[in-house]
Amino acid sequence: MGLKNKIMFVVQRPPYKSEDPKLALTHALSSGVTSIHIDEEVVPTVAFIGDGILNCVRDQKSMEAYGIISNERHIKNMLATDTKTLVCKEDIERLGIKEERLIDASDMGADMTIKVVPFNEILKEMEENDHLMFF
């Protein structure tokens, strides 16, 4: 059997109260070292939907406030490692988050940016991935 190595991480909860969104990000980031176990790396896609889009708001200061690495830092690392990262357009509009408030990693030299897409495009991405992990 061939590998089913396209895995989509869907983040649907807001950051910090729960560990869930952070675990989604750290799991997605670990895709890059899966080739020590299998022939090909896991290819991750990360999508933020519902209240989960709030993970993508920039200028998180969790290190200053609580001494922990921010979800922003992990998202920037994802972008810097070319992880396809989607955020639901309808949800950022519903919650009043402007696109300019979304995280970018250009200061780390990343070409990849968070892509704002309608939910239908996220659904299409779900169809194209082999496995789904909802957080």
Binding site: M1, L3, I7, R13, D20, T34, V42, H131, L132, F134
Partner: peptide, 16 residues
């Protein structure tokens, strides 16, 4: 993730 890639099915219970 590597085990998931080798699996026919993955059930990920990621929230409480």
């Amino acid at each position: 993730l590597a085990k998931a890639a080798q699996s026919d099915r993955v059930l990920h219970i990621g929230v409480e």
